[in-house]
């Protein structure tokens, strides 16, 4: 039933036989069932570390900026991490990793949404007309909000019910993650001062590698 949306090898992980295997081998079941909660907590650590350092470190001069940058950067990182899942799975035959994909993608959305909330509440101080003005006036923010809005349908359709409901349409919809990642990197590039482009350029390079990998797969059939 997952035929239209995921590569063949992923199906193994999602399929009934995978579950049966777990049931047949109780020891394996307990270790494997830990992966998801452990990764779930790991993904929260950057946020927890950021909040902890603001609460305890008197050297933090501009905590709002720190949180805004932290959530923006991790939003982008999780987009790229999500895009790594299929290559890792196929290259190293890490079949188990596929079941993390949805959570990683949702974390990208979670951090990006927090980024927006921090910006509206702490940076714009809930002055919505000022916020809308900024969104229209500042190109890099316009592009940021477009990226976030584009992530919304992907986040909403990441559940099993939507996967089933959308059928063949699910996969092209979720391929939107590539242009979204490009938008986010442009957003990053445009807020850089002077020619300090090293960080966004590195993210762009990483995305290009993933795109080339994807393109080769498609060409190879």
């Amino acid at each position: 039933m997952y035929q239209p949306c995921v590569p063949a090898s992923v199906q193994y992980c999602l399929s009934a036989s995978y579950g049966n295997e777990e049931l047949q081998n109780p020891r394996m079941f307990s270790i494997k069932s830990l992966t998801k909660p452990v990764v779930f907590i790991l993904c929260l650590l950057p946020l927890i570390a950021g909040i902890y350092s603001i609460a305890t470190n008197s050297l933090v001069a501009n905590p709002v900026e720190d949180l805004l940058h932290l959530t923006g950067e991790w939003g982008l990182k999780f987009l790229l991490i999500t895009l790594c899942v299929t290559p890792l799975q196929l290259t190293f035959k890490w079949l188990w990793i596929a079941k993390l994909r949805r959570m990683l993608g949702l974390y990208a959305f979670f951090y990006a949404l927090l980024h927006l909330i921090i910006w509206v509440v702490l940076e714009q101080e809930l002055d919505l007309s000022a916020a809308i003005n900024e969104i229209i006036e500042k190109k890099y923010i316009t592009i940021g909000i477009i990226a976030l809005l584009a992530m919304l349908p992907l986040a909403v359709t990441s559940n099993r019910w939507a996967i089933r409901k959308l059928g063949k349409k699910w996969k092209p919809l979720h391929r939107m993650i590539y242009p979204i990642a490009v938008l986010v990197i442009v957003h990053f590039l445009w807020q850089v001062r002077a020619k300090d482009i090293l960080e966004p350029a590195m993210h762009l390079g990483f995305l290009l590698v993933l795109l080339i990998w994807r393109f080769k797969k498609i060409v190879a059939g």
Partner: peptide
Amino acid sequence: SHPRWSQAKERRLDGESKGLSALFAEK
């Protein structure tokens, strides 16, 4: 206005509010 930052307001970094409450310090 600067193309990146509105210049109407500023965040004063003076350590008046500390820790997490600094997140909510008014511009």
